[in-house]
Simulated assay, not measured.
Amino acid sequence: MRILQIVPSISLIYGGPSQMVLGLAPALAREGVEVTILTTNSNGDRGQKSLDVPLNTPIKQDGYEIIYFRSAPFRRYKFSLDLLKWLNFHAHKFDLAHIHALFSPVSSVAAAICRHQKLPYILRPLGTLDPADIRKKRQLKKFYALMLESANIARAAAMHFTSIQEAKISERFGVATRDLVIPLGVIPSQEDGESTLRQQWSIPVDVPLVLFMSRIDPKKGLNLLIPALEKLLAAGLNFHFVLAGTNPQDPDYEEKIKSQIYNSCLRSHTTITGFVTGELKSALLQAADIFVLPSYYENFGIAVAEAMAAGTPVIISDQVHICQEVHESESGWVSKLEVPTLTELLRIALQNPYECQRRGLRAKEYALQHYSWDAIARQMIEAYKNILVQR
């Protein structure tokens, strides 16, 4: 099989969507699939330098190839006319396209090209069909869907959702779809830099570390988490909070959150790292005693799965769509979207280290069994084959 993976950007600064494609591609290649990723050199939306990569030429890595195209002229929207021209010319050489993103111009036009070229394609909406997300720009999305995306959805071979809950609540704009539910995978952390990290930031070994690692965005629930942590400090609980993440699309909100922490009692109990990757990211996931993500909506939550794979118990909201899996596997705790419940669950976790340890072990066991990239690649290949046989 020759499979195209099309994604607006694979810069890790954009978080989950990039990690998914970079995890899936080598796993598919290990199973004998020929994979080509089409993407742009976009690397942030507010003045960051573009990725320093060769353009318009295949680059071989980890058993697959990737082709970068210049993101221009609308950098914020990660648009590339060169990518679309390449796809239009080469689409007939491939068996299927897996397109990651809706309501993104390059992905939308790519799907239209696949329709025209009669290349079957799968769409992964990345949570953009969640009613909570649609409400933010309802009229614009309705118009966009009317003009382009509804036809893309209607003609897609399948819609790839990463959780049953995401598939259940997603808007379809009146179009019937074939749903494919396959979760995301994670690469377990290998490095153990916990002691070095604590020394670097002067965090005593006996002080619990509470980790938030995600994009700093209003939907992530920091307006619930910060007051909850303040209440715990006021009640005399001792911990160290690590805020790891950034927001290249809304730096003003990021600065607002930082200012809120600097002007509160949390200031002397908090380390703000900015965007993390590589060894530092692995060390943080392993050093954390509790990972917390009280999002207002989250189609999967790749950072949650990564924390689980590192053996860290999680506290998430009931709007993170793997909350049922977390609850049933006892990998952590699930909170309502309210400060009192979140505060109470954090208090329980902080005051019961042995229970945290037990749930961390359950989390690791569950993640390694269900979020292995090799296992997910095999599920994906079976789905690809079924689509091609039916067509």
Rank of each mutant, 00 (worst) to 15 (best):
L388V: 00
N223F: 14
R138P: 03
G360Q: 06
Y77K: 15
E344M: 11
A176T: 14
Y371E: 04
I113C: 03
L224E: 02
L28Y: 02
L184E: 03
I203M: 10
I272A: 11
L184C: 07
L148S: 15
F173Q: 14
F103P: 01
E306A: 06
R359S: 06
E365T: 14
T277K: 15
I376P: 11
G360V: 03
T343W: 01
L237E: 15
F79M: 03
K281L: 08
G185V: 03
S9N: 12
S18R: 10
N247D: 06
A305H: 03
K231Q: 05
E306T: 00
Y384M: 06
F241A: 05
G301D: 01
L237Q: 14
S329I: 09
V186M: 14
E191F: 14
W373C: 01
I315A: 05
T196W: 09
F161G: 01
D130G: 04
F143I: 14
Q190W: 12
S9K: 12
L350S: 04
F74G: 05
V33S: 03
T246P: 02
K281R: 09
E31I: 11
P26H: 00
V314C: 07
D179S: 13
L12S: 15
R178D: 15
N263M: 05
Y262R: 09
S42Q: 03
Y354M: 08
I113E: 00
L225F: 12
P125S: 11
A235V: 08
A367W: 06
K385N: 12
R2S: 14
R76H: 15
L346E: 10
P183N: 00
S50R: 09
Y262D: 10
S264W: 10
Q260C: 11
R70G: 13
L350W: 02
V320H: 04
C323R: 03
W201H: 07
L280G: 09
L180C: 09
M213A: 10
E306K: 02
P73S: 06
A307Q: 00
D318F: 09
A157K: 11
W86Q: 00
L87I: 13
F103G: 02
L368W: 07
D217Q: 15
L146A: 04
P54M: 06
I381A: 08
T273C: 11
N43R: 12
F89K: 14
A303D: 03
R76G: 14
S282Q: 05
L368V: 10
Q139T: 15
K141G: 14
A157P: 10
I6F: 11
E254G: 05
W333R: 01
